[in-house]
């Protein structure tokens, strides 16, 4: 008898779940690995106050998100890079009007294994390291050791951003292409000659302290200037750290009301608090002015 009753209750629950499901509106978000944890937390907080809306967030890389938007499978694409001309052409061919919304800012941190005897470098040297012109730590005044490069795959917005901003040419072919920020972090911890790039959100733990087993390299834009650490929030806000970048949402056409409501939540103090807790920064003034969704 008990089992009969259980079955009845179960089917009732499933039936009711089916009922409520139909009334829930869904926003499907996909893309940037840098943004995935952050947007997931924003979505969870948002759904707590708005049970009628379901926001699903997955990663895969900025390129995957934008491709998904162009192929009509997504509502919002997360991206840590701007949409490129080639993608804009594809979008107009498919009658997709891309709208962009910058909800936060990130700084790309250069991390090394703690045994690397270098604390700061110029942006120029950084580019030479990742393009393979500098191959040994000795060339930068460290102990001899073949530099071991860790970067992302070509589906990553960070891969593109870093190449555009720092290299201006192709990466060295020997660079190890990792699947995400977390993998780069783990690999750099384990490799005494390692250098890699990760986003601010992966640099610190839940309490805001720097993660163990890595060293953050300070960067200078011109020789003779003071080297800036990405952990120095005041300097980043003042625009002194060279690898600061906006984090984007892209949507098709004018954002619908439910997407707009989610964007509004991200802009609100509650949303910005979550962004700060995750180690990211509020969008810059220029970023806010650039937004096509206000």
């Amino acid at each position: 008898m008990l089992s009969m009753r259980t079955v009845l209750y179960c089917s009732l629950i499933i039936f009711l779940a089916g009922c409520t499901r139909r009334n829930v509106e869904t926003i499907t978000i996909k893309g940037s690995d840098t943004e995935v944890n952050l947007v997931l937390q924003l979505a969870e907080a948002y759904m707590e106050t708005n049970p009628a809306i379901s926001v699903s967030v997955t990663g895969g890389g900025s390129g995957v998100g934008i491709a998904g938007l162009l192929n009509g499978r997504l509502d919002v694409a997360n991206s840590s890079r701007e949409i490129n001309n080639h993608e804009l052409v594809l979008a107009s061919e498919r009658n997709i009007a891309i709208e962009h919304f910058i909800f936060a800012a990130d700084a790309l941190a250069i991390i090394c294994h703690p045994s690397v005897p270098i604390d700061s470098m110029s942006l120029d040297d950084l580019g030479k390291i990742f393009s393979g012109e500098i191959q040994n730590w000795q060339q930068l005044g460290g102990a001899a050791g073949i530099i071991s490069l860790y970067g992302r795959q070509s589906n990553s917005g960070t891969f593109m951003y870093f190449r555009e901003r720092v290299l201006g040419k192709d990466y060295a072919p020997g660079i190890k292409q990792m699947n995400g920020n977390a993998q780069i972090l783990e690999a750099v911890k384990a490799d005494p000659n390692a250098i890699g790039y990760i986003s601010l959100g992966y640099l610190t733990d839940e309490t805001g302290a720097l993660r163990h087993g890595i060293k953050v390299i300070k960067l200078t834009t011109e020789p003779g200037k003071i080297a800036i650490s990405p952990l120095d929030r005041a300097a980043i806000k003042a625009g002194l750290y060279p690898l600061t970048r906006p984090l984007f949402h892209f949507s098709n056409g004018t954002a619908s009301d439910i997407i707009r409501a989610f964007y509004d939540f991200e802009k609100s103090p509650a949303g910005q608090k979550i962004i700060a807790q995750n180690g990211y920064l509020p969008p810059s003034e220029a970023g806010l002015a650039f937004n096509s969704v206000k």
């Binding site: 890389g61 390129g63 491709a67 162009l70 080639h86 070509s154 589906n155 292409q177």
Partner: peptide, 9 residues
């Protein structure tokens, strides 16, 4: 596997 996801058709 890496590149199929991001490549435009």
């Amino acid at each position: 596997a890496i590149e199929m996801g991001e490549v435009p058709f």
